[in-house]
């Protein structure tokens, strides 16, 4: 293997403490004009404050409310999402998969941490953890139980391992008792985990997790 440097990784030249390690690299790159500190702030602000699960929740609520929108979303999500301004980095090729009484969908990336950024933002720590990556494909029901989710016996689990540039969003089942709610009220029932498939949508009146 020509590109490995087992005893000689360049990163070992940086300080051992991770916060100092990032700072050191950032300082070197800034001094050389390779990164612009203002651009870093803009990136952080984007994913901290502007792009997150509220985007996906809006799409799910609309799909619950509008059968034509839902049909179009499930058939070919990309043009539908582009029209909503939800196209972008790590969401270039979206597929939306619907939970039904017969099939529960759940998303993982066993090889790294692929995740639909424009719809859900930056993945939570558990999604990137070794335990989730290792176990979600082999024992999804035990993993679901750790999230407090138990499926009926007749419901099959389909786990989507995001091995390519295709990103998956789960369309959770619309909760009972949500009839008559508007899109904004419905969106408040859609949790991040319900769009990854490790949770279900909240019941109306259920306290936020």
């Amino acid at each position: 293997m020509p590109h490995d440097h087992h005893d000689d990784h360049s990163h070992a030249l940086l300080p051992p403490d991770p916060a100092l390690r990032v700072k050191a690299l950032e300082t070197i790159l800034t001094e050389k004009g390779l990164i612009d500190p203002a651009a870093l702030e803009e990136i952080i602000d984007t994913y901290q404050n502007r792009i997150g699960p509220q985007n996906g929740a809006r799409v799910v609520a609309r799909a619950w409310s509008d059968p034509d929108f839902k049909a179009a979303l499930l058939a070919d999500a990309d043009p539908v999402l582009a029209e909503l301004g939800l196209y972008g980095r790590q969401g270039e090729h979206m597929v939306v998969v619907e939970n039904t009484a017969q099939q529960h969908n759940m998303v993982v990336c066993t090889l790294c941490s692929c995740y639909p950024w424009p719809l859900l933002g930056i993945p939570p720590g558990w999604y990137k953890s070794d335990a989730y990556r290792a176990r979600a494909v082999r024992e999804p029901r035990k993993v679901l139980a750790e999230f407090g989710v138990t499926l009926p016996k007749g419901c099959a689990v389909r786990v989507w391992d995001s091995t390519a540039e295709v990103r998956y969003l789960v369309l959770p089942a619309r909760p009972e008792g949500s009839e008559g709610l508007g899109e904004e009220e419905l969106a408040a029932l859609v949790t991040r985990d319900s769009m990854i498939g490790t949770g279900l949508a909240r019941q109306p009146g259920e306290a936020p997790a």
């Binding site: 939570p124 335990a131 494909v137 391992d161 985990d193």
Partner: peptide
Amino acid sequence: MGGRFGDGPVVPE
């Protein structure tokens, strides 16, 4: 690591 044994529980935030 898909399918690997021994990682323990997933701890949701």
